[in-house]
């Protein structure tokens, strides 16, 4: 069993959702994660709030948030256990993040300290 990180990419992180939208979205996210955890495949996960975000560039140049040049921003991640990347992809397909047009979930295997990576 490998670990995969599912990285949520939001096309426009500066969009502000209404509290009602947030609540619906939270519930959907909890159901989605609960379903993964019920299969004992959930490792951990977290949201990455857009406030207090900084980007540190070459030469130590610090800018506020990643919202300047790049449109795409990270909104959070979930780490799952999966037998294959295909299984991890199936988990990713259930993410409520994908309801937002242009949003994506990137699936990456986590190097397991096997000496190769």
């Amino acid at each position: 069993m490998e670990q995969y990180i599912l990285i949520f990419r939001h096309q426009d992180g500066s969009k502000v959702a209404s509290p009602e939208q947030m609540q619906v979205w939270m519930k959907q996210t909890m159901d989605w994660i609960g379903g993964i955890a019920a299969q004992n495949k959930f490792v951990q996960g977290n949201g990455l709030p857009f406030d207090e975000a900084r980007v540190v560039g070459h030469g130590g140049v610090v800018t506020n948030g990643p919202f300047g040049d790049v449109k795409e921003t990270l909104g959070g991640y979930v780490i799952v256990r999966a037998a294959s990347v295909d299984e991890a992809v199936e988990f990713a397909k259930g993410s409520p993040v994908l309801q937002g047009e242009g949003n994506t979930v990137e699936v990456r295997r986590i190097a397991s300290g096997d000496g190769v990576h």
């Binding site: 519930k27 909890m30 994660i33 609960g34 955890a37 019920a38 004992n40 959930f42």
Partner: peptide, 18 residues
């Protein structure tokens, strides 16, 4: 109850909780 089980399973998996 559903939302609490969603949280519980993240804290501690068990077949009965699932």
């Amino acid at each position: 109850i559903l939302q609490l089980y969603n949280v519980l399973l993240q804290l501690q998996y068990s077949p009965i909780a699932a």
